[in-house]
Computed example of a mutant assay.
Amino acid sequence: MSQYEIADVDRSAVNSSQVIELELVGADREVLDIGCATGYLGSALAEQGCTVTGVEYDAEAAERAREVMSEVVVADLERSDLTELFPGRTFDVVVLGDVLEHLMHPEQVLASAVRLLAPGGSVVVSVPNVAHGSLRLALLQGRWDYRETGLLDRTHVRFFTRQGVADLLRAAGLRPVDVRAVVLDPLEVEVDVDADALPWAVVDWVRKQPDAYTYQFVLRAVPGEDDGTPFPEPVPAVPLPERDDAHTERGRIEAALHAPTVGRGDIVDEVIELRHRVLTLRDHAVGAEASVGAARNSVARAQAAERHARAELERQLAEIKSTASWRVGTKIVSPLARVKRVVRGS
C-alpha cells in the first residue's frame, strides 16, 4: 500500500491541500493528475464531473487508481517527457499535488506539463513550505529529522520557500493567479520541537514571521511571461489561530521591556556608543595593567641581577683573601696604615 494513500478526500477539511486542489480545478474538466497515487484525488474530481487521467510511479498504486480513473500511465517522471506519454493530447488542468518536491528537476516536469495544456488551461500545484515555523524552530535546536511523511518526508529532494515557488513557476513559463495556504501552528505539526528549551520569546517571534504558519502552498497558475508582478500573498485556507499561551505571554513581556526604546534610535545609538567607550576603556586598563606588570618584571630581574653580582663579588673577594699574597700584602700594608693614622693625628 502506498504511504501516501488517503481513503477518501474529506471535503469538510477545508484546511487541506486536496480540498483546495478540488476547488482550484473546478467541475467538468479534462484533468491530468500527475502523481495520482491510488486515485483518491481523481475519484473526488470525478464526482465533480471531471474526466481524470493519471500518471503514477508505483505500479501497485497505479493499478488501484485505474479502478476510479479513466486511464493511468505508469512512468518515472525523471526519465519521461509528459508530451511523449500523451502525444497529441491536451488537458484543461494538470495537477501536481505534492509531487515537485520529490523530483531532482521539477522545473523540467512542470515545463512539460505546460505543453499539455489546452487553450485557457492551467496548472494546479501544491508544495510543502520549508520556511514553516516548525522547521525554523527545529533548526535553532540543531534538528533536521526526516520522517515517512510531512514537511521532512525522507523522499523529498527539493525544498521550497515562497520565493522558491515563484522562481519555479517563472522557470516553467507560468504565472500564479490564485495562491492559497494550508496553515498550521508551528507547535502543532509532526516536526519535533522542544519549545520550552528555546530562548525567551523565540516561539512568539517566529510565529509572527511571514509564512511561519504556511504548511503548504497550493496554487493555480497559467502560462504567461514574467511581467514583474509580485508573487500574490497566499490566502489562508482558514483564519490564522489567535494564540494565547506561555509563548505569547513571553512575547508580550518582551515587547513591554523594549517599549521605551521603540522609535528611539537615538537612545539605542547612545547606549551602543557608551558600551563601545566602556569596552575601549576596559581595553586601555588591561593594556596599562599589562605594562605595569612588565615593568615590575623588569625591576625584579634587575634586582636579581644585582644580588647575583654582589654575591659573585663577595665570592671572588673571599677567594683573594684566602691567598698567600693577600696575607703577605696585609702584613706589609698594616704598619703603613698605622703610620698614616699617627701622622693625620698630629
Rank of each mutant, 00 (worst) to 15 (best):
M1C: 05
Q3M: 11
Y4P: 00
R11V: 15
S12N: 06
S16Y: 08
S16H: 14
I20E: 15
I34Q: 01
C36K: 05
T38Y: 00
Y40S: 10
Y40R: 03
Y40Q: 07
G42Q: 05
G42P: 03
G42C: 06
L45V: 02
T53M: 10
G54A: 06
D58A: 12
A59Q: 15
A62Q: 09
R64T: 11
A65I: 05
R66D: 01
V68F: 14
V72I: 07
V72S: 03
E78M: 06
E78I: 06
R79G: 06
S80K: 14
L82F: 02
L85R: 12
P87Q: 08
F91L: 01
D92Y: 07
V94N: 10
H102A: 02
L103H: 06
L103T: 03
M104E: 15
E107G: 01
Q108A: 14
P119W: 12
V123G: 07
V125T: 13
N129R: 08
S134Q: 06
R143V: 06
R147P: 00
E148L: 08
H156L: 07
A166M: 08
L168E: 13
L174G: 08
R175Q: 03
R180S: 09
V193D: 05
V193E: 09
A195H: 08
A197M: 09
W200C: 04
D204R: 07
D204T: 11
V206A: 10
P210L: 11
A212T: 04
Y213E: 01
Q216C: 01
R220C: 02
G224V: 01
G224W: 04
G228N: 00
T229R: 10
P236L: 07
V238I: 05
V238Q: 14
P239K: 04
P241D: 00
P241Q: 07
G251R: 03
I253M: 11
E254G: 05
A259Y: 10
A259M: 11
D266F: 12
I267A: 15
E270K: 09
H276C: 05
L279G: 03
A288Q: 11
A290D: 02
G293W: 03
Q303Y: 02
Q303D: 08
Q303M: 08
A305S: 14
H308R: 15
L313T: 13
L313I: 11
R315G: 12
L317Q: 14
K321D: 03
K321I: 00
T323P: 01
A324G: 07
T330P: 00
I332M: 13
P335A: 05
L336M: 13
V339W: 13
R341L: 14
R344E: 12
G345C: 11
